[in-house]
Amino acid sequence: MKLYGVLVLFVTFSVASGLRCYAYFAAEPNTCTGVMTCPAGFDRCASVKAEVTGLIDKGCLQKAACISPIKCCDKDLCNGAVPTGPGVTLLLLSSALMMLFI
């Protein structure tokens, strides 16, 4: 029963911390490394490439503002070109399971 309490705590913490997105303006492709936590009301990570210059803007947007050619997604750091790996929740879950069997 304690395990369920810990899992609920970790899931609640990960939701409460807000969406994190790559944020960079007028960057060369594949060089966006800045990360920001989106303010309240911004529920999408966004990325748009300027057709003329080829530079990329990344940041947080509201769902209603996600129109073509802006690409939006709703997971942590999903607007990056580099794979982000497993999330913190998965790491904490695996740690909790290891503690259960040790």
Score class of each variant (00 low, 15 high):
98 M>I: 06
35 V>R: 12
97 L>T: 05
62 Q>S: 05
89 T>V: 14
78 C>T: 09
3 L>C: 09
97 L>H: 04
85 G>F: 02
65 A>G: 11
39 P>D: 15
84 T>L: 02
56 I>F: 04
94 S>H: 01
79 N>D: 08
34 G>E: 15
60 C>F: 09
90 L>W: 03
100 L>G: 06
91 L>A: 07
91 L>S: 05
4 Y>T: 12
95 S>K: 00
90 L>V: 07
46 A>N: 13
59 G>V: 00
42 F>S: 09
30 N>R: 08
75 K>S: 14
50 A>K: 04
18 G>M: 01
59 G>W: 06
87 G>W: 01
71 K>G: 02
19 L>T: 02
78 C>Q: 04
94 S>D: 06
70 I>Y: 01
50 A>Y: 10
36 M>L: 14
81 A>R: 10
60 C>N: 05
32 C>W: 06
85 G>T: 03
46 A>G: 14
16 A>C: 12
5 G>I: 06
70 I>L: 09
6 V>C: 09
47 S>L: 13
73 C>S: 08
84 T>Q: 12
33 T>N: 13
65 A>T: 06
94 S>I: 07
7 L>I: 13
92 L>Q: 08
25 F>Y: 13
47 S>F: 04
73 C>W: 10
27 A>T: 08
18 G>S: 04
95 S>G: 04
82 V>M: 07
48 V>W: 03
82 V>G: 03
5 G>T: 07
99 M>Y: 08
28 E>L: 12
87 G>N: 09
42 F>R: 08
47 S>H: 10
66 C>G: 02
41 G>W: 05
67 I>M: 08
63 K>G: 03
81 A>V: 01
15 V>Y: 10
19 L>I: 00
59 G>S: 05
21 C>E: 11
14 S>M: 12
22 Y>E: 13
47 S>P: 06
34 G>H: 14
12 T>S: 15
100 L>K: 13
2 K>Q: 13
16 A>D: 10
96 A>F: 01
54 G>W: 07
6 V>N: 08
101 F>N: 15
9 L>W: 06
15 V>D: 14
25 F>P: 00
17 S>L: 06
31 T>A: 12
90 L>M: 06
49 K>F: 08
66 C>Q: 02
49 K>G: 07
96 A>C: 11
88 V>Q: 09
70 I>D: 00
96 A>S: 11
53 T>D: 10
5 G>R: 04
51 E>Q: 11
21 C>K: 00
43 D>C: 04
12 T>G: 12
42 F>I: 01
23 A>E: 15
86 P>S: 10
24 Y>I: 14
19 L>F: 02
73 C>L: 11
62 Q>H: 04
14 S>Q: 12
7 L>M: 10
52 V>R: 03
95 S>I: 08
